[in-house]
């Protein structure tokens, strides 16, 4: 049994978000992190590894510096890492991205008792589309928003969160699960893990490595293979700052209540 975890390196949007004058995101000036939901997927995989001794393979698509993130996940305890990286893959929307990742996962190979895991969504795009689209391309059943995962033989029982409660879903392996933060608390890298991370196998899948997969085609990858196009991107006008009230005493509160009453807000 093995678990393949798909992860993404993202700009840390909890820090300062910098926007270029032309309205695009200034990625260069932002720190990068492993997408938070993906770390929950990694932790879920590592927990199953602790229980069953299975193998954990982590895969990402991105530029070469994403290797650093993969090393960190190896240091957490993953066994192998795959970096999917090629100029031909650039400019992909979620459809094209999932097409490429599905091809990479095909090349790693999904067998009868395997699981593919993803985070629910990445904090930069916030689409939550790539996981289900990979599942569709690999013809795997999917369970998204997993908040608890129990494995018994080849049956996985997942607690799938809804806005107003949850569903319990049973699914057979192989399957794809997308994970949310309620699932677990990701572990830290261990010191020995950091040492070992550099001797663990790391492969790079470039265009050559994947081009024979039926999913990889000029019309299904990169900018040309993306069904969606950006018509325009823009920054919203900043809402002007309102009125700062002087002081923090009783009169100030009364003044505010007075304004609200006068404007018929209360």
């Amino acid at each position: 049994m093995k678990i393949i975890v798909s992860v993404k390196q993202v700009p840390d949007t909890s820090g300062k978000v910098a926007v270029n004058p032309d309205g695009t995101l200034d990625r260069a000036s932002m720190q990068t992190i492993t997408n938070p939901d993906d770390l929950n997927a990694v932790e879920a995989a590592l927990k199953l590894k602790d229980e069953t001794g299975c193998k954990v393979i982590v895969v990402t698509m991105g530029p070469p510096p994403a290797e650093g993130m993969l090393r960190e996940i190896l240091a957490m305890g993953a066994d192998e890492a795959v970096l999917v990286s090629a100029r031909e893959f650039g400019g992909s929307d979620t459809y094209a991205t999932s097409q490429i990742l599905a091809a990479a996962i095909n090349r790693i190979g999904v067998e009868k008792d395997d699981i593919v895991m993803c985070g629910r969504q990445a904090i930069d795009g916030d689409t939550a589309q790539v996981g289900p689209q990979i599942a569709e391309k690999l013809h795997l059943p999917q369970v998204t928003y997993a908040a608890d995962i129990q494995k018994s033989g080849d049956t996985i029982t997942v607690k799938r969160m809804l806005e107003d409660g949850y569903m319990t879903i049973k699914v057979q392996t192989p399957c794809l699960l997308t994970c949310i933060k309620e699932l677990n608390n990701p572990r830290y890298m261990s010191v020995s893990g950091v040492f070992e991370a550099y001797s663990k196998p790391m492969s790079v899948f470039d265009y050559e490595a994947l081009k024979d997969d039926p999913l990889i085609d000029a019309t299904t990858i990169g900018l040309k293979g993306s069904p969606t196009n950006i018509l325009t991107s823009f920054t919203p006008p900043q809402k002007g700052a309102g009125m700062m009230l002087e002081g923090d005493g009783k009169e100030t509160c009364e003044k505010l209540a007075g304004i609200l009453a006068k404007k018929h807000i209360i």
Binding site: V17, G23, D126, N229, I230, S233, T235
Partner: peptide
Amino acid sequence: PAFGGHLMATIICPRF
């Protein structure tokens, strides 16, 4: 909105 509303994008799907 993308990136927490700092950037807005208008997307089209012209071919499909």
